[in-house]
Amino acid sequence: MPIIEIVFYLFAAVLVASALSVVTVGNPVYAVLFLVLSFFSAACIWLLLEAEFLAIILVLVYVGAVMVLFLFVVMMLDVGGGQKKAQFARYLPVGLLVALAMAGQLFLVIWTQGFEAQFMPEPYPEGFSHTRALGELLYTDYLYAFEIAAVLLLVAIIAAIALTHRRRPETRYQDPSEQIKVRKAERVRLVSMPSEKEGASGNGNGQEGS
C-alpha cells in the first residue's frame, strides 16, 4: 500500500507542478512541453486506478498527436512571450478573484461532504483487462453505433479534403518523368563571348545552367 501512495504523490506533485508551470512560464514552447508532462503524469495516475485503456489513449492521442500539433502551431506562429508579462499583471486582480471564488466553492463542497471516499470500488482481479471489456461491449452491443461513428469520421475527412484541397494553376510541383526525359539542349545554353584580355576575372563566362 505505501508504495502505491508514494507513487501517487510523486506523480500528483509532478502533475501539479507542471500544470502550474504551463500558466506561469514565459515561453509558449516551454508551456506546451509542460502540458505534455502534466498529461503524462495524469496518465500515470490513471494507470494506478487500473484504467489502463484510458491512460494509453491519453498518451497516444493527446501526448502523441494533439500536443505535437499544438507545438507545431506554436512554433509556426512564433507567439512572442514579451507582452504576456504585462497582460498577466493587468488581469491579475480578476484572475485572483476567480481563483478565490473557485477555492471557496471547493472548500464548501469539502466542508459539507467531507473528503472521505464514499464508495470505494473493489479492485479488479489480477489479469482483468479494461481494453478487453470495452472491446467486447463495443463490438457486440454497440457495434452498429460504433460503425456509424466510424462513418462519421470518414465523412469528416471527405468534407475537410473537399473544402480545403484545390488545384491552383500557380502551384508548382515536380513531375519526375519530365525531369528524367529532359535533354541537355533544353536546359543549357551556350553563349560565345569574346575573351577578355586584361585581368584574370573573366573565366566564368560561357555557360548558364539551371
Partner: peptide
C-alpha cells in the same frame, strides 16, 4: 431505436450538409 443511433444518424446528416 436508441437515442445513441438517433443522434449519430443526425450528426452524419448534419456534417454532410455543412460540407
Amino acid at each position: 431505436s436508441s437515442l445513441l443511433t438517433l443522434y449519430l444518424g443526425l450528426e452524419l446528416l448534419a456534417l454532410s450538409s455543412y460540407a
